[in-house]
Design a protein around this nucleic acid. Sequence first.
RNA 1: GAUCCCGUAGCUCAAUGGAUAGAGCAACUGCCUUCUAAGCAGUAGGUUACUGGUUCGACCCCAGUCGGGAUCGCCA
Length: 599
Amino acid sequence: MSPQEHYLRTHLQPLILREYAGLLKPEHLVFQQTRKDFSGDITLVLFGPAKRLSMNPLAFGERTRIFLGTLSFEGQPLVESSEIVQGFLNISLSAHFWMHAHQEGSRPTPNISGKKLLVEFASPNTNKPLHLGHIRNILLGMAVSRLSEEAGDEVVRVQVINDRGIHICKSMLAWEKFGQGETPQSSGLKGDHLVGKYYVRFDVEWRRQTEERKDGGMDARTAKDHAPILLEAQQMLRDWEVGVPGVRALWQSMNGWVYSGFDQTHQRLGSFFDRNYYESETYVLGRDQVLDGLARGVFERDPDGSVWANLTGAGLDRKVLLRSDGTSVYITQDIGTAIERQKEWNTDEMTYVVGNEQDYHFKVLFLVLQRLGYEWASRCHHLSYGMVDLPSGRMKSREGTVVDADDLMDEMVAAARDKSEFSEKLMELSEGDKTILFNQVGMAALKYFILKVDPQKRMVFHPEESIDLQGHTGPFIQYAHARACAVLRKAESIGIGASVLATAALPSDIKLTERELMRQLSGYRESIFASHTHKNPSLLCQYAYDLAGLYNRFYHDCPILTPETTDESRLFRLYLSQEAARVLKRSLFVLGIEAPDRM
RNA sequence: GAUCCCGUAGCUCAAUGGAUAGAGCAACUGCCUUCUAAGCAGUAGGUUACUGGUUCGACCCCAGUCGGGAUCGCCA
């Protein structure tokens, strides 16, 4: 809740108790920011309360309006003006109040919540490099983590790396057959890309064999499912499982290449983990829990020996948990991992950042955990996000339309460089500093592009057009910040530094833009809170964009260091610049975006 | 077939059940000899897929229809 709303609610309480006791409660009041076309800061919607009181909205509004007129804030009238328009009470609060409110609301909650959350994200396979889909996942995971931290929680970041299975065997086999000993060192290829190359190579060979056999008269299904290279890969998986030393050694070295590649990508993205889980270690987990559940009658066993959870009562299907041969399936492992992790970290909440194609899987998983009697299952949350599509539809590795994460970052950074490499403003920067800057700007464009969209929704990425550095973008917000920094630098150079700014006070007269800037600043904490509770970074994106836009307008409307500006206004405007810069930088930080001082 | 998600300007996206549905891109018009023009100001662009319903009020909630996507494996 914003400071202004909180203040009004609190101070309207006496009126409510006195006049409307029993009929109206403070929570029945609905406030919203006043729309642009009307004058006012905050608006009380009159319809709801009026209805509860069986009153005319106008009458209720007028009585409230008069009461508000009697309120004071630190010895001065709280309300500057107010008017009722069509069932809305528009209230302008005093500049004096805004001076207080923006300081109050623009800082994160000071106290630690004591809550510990676990966020699982990224969770790649080790047979190919990361792509745009992973980027969305990772950025969401990092952003919700930071949001939680900003809201006062402790966060544990983890990922589960799918390092075993037929997919990695395919890469390994193809490398053995066609690789001629190629390594990242020998070829200069990034490790994950090298392994991905052999995954593709496998597929090419597999298709070749399939076609060859189809031409030989075999039916398509058999040709594909019994192609020699696939059989070899399956044999390799069996060898891996029993621990054949050669296979294990190759597996370790190829996975090692992939991890060093992933590390580079994560470093550029600014993502990190407190703990990695490897499926090669966790895939055996969960079996015991399932058997235990079976013994307790939570699950049922079919005649063929397979074990099932019957979820039909909850509107879902029956779900197999153990195969008839007693081995685990995917969800078995997830059950085991969740339980293990809860033991290890004892968190208050677990969030899984996973694409919405697994919505059903997580419904089942949480329900099964609940049936097993784990009360914390109700605090598990699937942060489901939509796919990133291309204009042509879904990315398909078969058709080579997958947007590679590293390539994409390179392109964004190159676009940032193209835009301003020869800009006069950056003349004094060294080449090294420019490189850092263009990285910051390019990555900001990419991250903001992803994060500004509601996670739940599918989004479309245009390879050419989406590389945008103007308008509703990350660089726009960075730019507002850099602008403010430039003013502050200049001020400092003429002797108005931070210590002087600390003495800034409200001038006798302020412009609308200055007031709006204070109002926007006052909404920071509320924005963090909303983004955090809804696990939706796009809300914070919108907030930061609005703040940046407002600062740009302020910058345009309110000259600061010019002679005609009075001393008190100059000081105040510098102070507002400092505050805007601070909150912009903080917002960007939570979103995982850097805020350069000049650009 | 069943279930879930989505459908808003030419394009990409906003809008706790509240006022005349907002931004950006693309198009067009202005604004740099003055603190950063990656900016500011403006023009144009809409039957919120469609049909009903709920109510003081619906892009939002409910029912149905149409379109797009996903899931429903002893795959992961």
